[in-house]
Design a protein around this nucleic acid. Structure first.
Ligand SMILES: [Mn+2]
Ligand SMILES: [Mn+2]
Ligand SMILES: [Zn+2]
Ligand SMILES: [Zn+2]
Lengths: 142, 142
DNA sequence: ATATTAATGCAAGTAGCTTGCATTAATATA
DNA sequence: TATATTAATGCAAGCTACTTGCATTAATAT
């Protein structure tokens, strides 16, 4: 995706195409897996200060450009969402590596709702796996 | 579960049966769904100060007495784990109500691991649903 | 009863995130 | 192209959830 496309995307959602927001979207596009705010801030090298990295990411989530991922470790992670379907992740408990787990059984929400006694609708879910990646498995055997 | 049983349980895991730890376990036993630390601290009325509520809960998790649940909202929730199987939760996005979702398809981990290119094992997963409970659905229609 | 040491209370510190506000820069308008 | 408008920004201060250090206390072992 070129800078001009990012500009178009931002304007389509009502944002101004600022240096900071363009750099942030570019950094997210550059990442194959969800990135921490710290990492994203590093990638954009001061194009936005910390407070505005937070502000911009949340505004992107509200606009549907980006997804916030919760990996159970107190930090928020973000991934680009446009034309990228809902999916899940595996996190290595040793080194932190994150891999996409493509796809999602449609039945999950239905089954959970059917089993529920007090809920009338399920809007979303979060499913994250925790395990050991091959490099870390080798390390621990060594 | 009586106080004497809690004492036995704590000692079996190498803990001393202190007033604070007994009160904390009792509070957890009293809760049908995961509780926030703030709520637990309230329930034990000063039997432990805040720092030791954190310390004790984490030591219980390490000992397998308690599970930490992540509901995507920056806080940790805890639920009693002994003789209570792995399961999931639905959270009401409006009022915060939490309900257990019993059971878990064994296939989840297997499917994810099979699809993965760089992981050799999956140890656990977190699956939480977000939706609207009946009372809140009614409220929003009104 | 006494010794040992896990557990505790208190205070200070940290990480991740939020908010207020004056200034700046992106866009709209002339 | 110049000017007006206001979204976006930088900076500073503040907040919440949580952690850590350490002297004291109380649960258990002897
Ligand atoms: Mn992903
Ligand atoms: Mn539960
Ligand atoms: Zn899914
Ligand atoms: Zn499960």
């Amino acid at each position: 995706m070129k800078t001009s496309d990012i500009t178009t995307l931002l304007r389509a959602k009502g944002f101004r195409a600022t240096q900071g927001k363009i750099a942030l979207i570019a950094a997210l596009l550059d990442s194959p897996s969800p990135e921490s705010i710290e990492t994203l801030a590093g990638k954009i090298k001061g194009a936005l200060d910390a407070a505005n990295v937070y502000r911009s990411l949340e505004s992107f989530v509200a606009a549907g450009l980006v997804r916030r991922i919760d990996l159970g470790n107190a930090k928020s992670y973000y991934e680009f969402a446009v034309d990228r379907k809902h999916h899940h992740h595996i996190v290595c408990t040793d080194c932190g590596r994150i891999e996409d787990v493509k796809g999602c059984s449609e039945a999950l929400d239905k089954t959970a709702l059917k089993a529920s006694t007090s809920f009338s609708a399920i809007q979303s879910h979060s499913l994250e796996f925790f395990g050991l990646c091959r490099p870390c498995t080798k390390k621990s055997v060594r």
